[in-house]
Nucleic acid binder design. Sequence first.
DNA 1: TCTGGGGTCCTAGGACCC
DNA 2: TCTGGGGTCCTAGGACCC
Length: 343
Amino acid sequence: MTRWVLHVDLDQFIAAVEILRRPELRGLPVVVGGDGDPAKRGVVATASYEAREYGVHSGLPMRTAARRCPDAVFLPADRAAYEAASAEVMTALRELGYVTEVLGWDEAFVAAETDDPEAVARRIQQHIRNATRLASSVGIGENRIQAKLASALAKPAGVFRLTSGSWFSVLGERPAGVLPGVGAKTERKLAGMGIRTVTELAGADLAAVAARFGPTIGPWLVQTARGLGSAEVSAEPYLPRSRSRETTFQRNIEDWAQVREQVLRLAAQVAQDVQAEQRPAVRIVVKVRHAPFRTSTHGHTLAEPASDGAAIGEAALAALDKFTDRRPVRLLGVRAEFADGED
DNA sequence: TCTGGGGTCCTAGGACCC
DNA sequence: TCTGGGGTCCTAGGACCC
């Protein structure tokens, strides 16, 4: 028996949940995001595969999506519905009895001791489909990084195995940006060093990469490009490090009295979230995005850990007072941080 | 017509202490 | 009078992910 890591990833999860409750949308380009009005500020949360054919993808401004695919059905994001669907999926997944680590609404790692990981993958897909009517893809690897990349290669609704033996033949010539953790900025920096592909990053000079990206991220990048990494799957319950609320205003706010009002409103929501966690906050951070999309943050550490709305609201205002730039405000956010450690 | 919301982790610089 | 070298903690910002 060999120990495998499986990465289960729901296919077009948010769009799929919407199509389930509106079957007439099946086969149509569906775009979910913002409040569903593509004329307003907001970005795409998920596009159905049909909409992706038009170049619509997550993170794209809704307005741009409407231009690329004017015939798409635009729907508002409905968090509660996705949370409920996600809970059903993860409950079904855990019923199979494997050590399971949930990563978000629509993905999880599973550890399995087996000589036939494809059979386990198919069983997982079938069980999730029976319980929720949702399709998933499953990646199989010797560790998390291999499994994660494998699930992307398995889409839609497939199973794909990626191991140290096949890593370079499958991914070696692909751009380094396919690796999780390598975003646009990192990819550009790597290109500046003459590193473009996964194979090139895997063979890069460790000291040079560490000098450019730091002693932790540098070596980690090279290891990732080699397809090496942790195979641990943790069943420990997830403890959030922070809870936050933020809003982008449809029209920029110019009056600072209004800014204070909005910060207090967000702080009240955060206080409720903190109370639901049953752990006190130790620090409150306010985020301000000014009109030209410049974002900065300032925090205020609480005199003592607290969960009540008054203390969190006061701390948020104290943090807000550290901002000196009074230009128009596009976005405000309030975040509560919990103490780290075991308690 | 630009660019959401909710998160995580790492880094760099200053403060502070010995 | 022209002031080293560590270590640790705190804060703000950067990058990334879904």
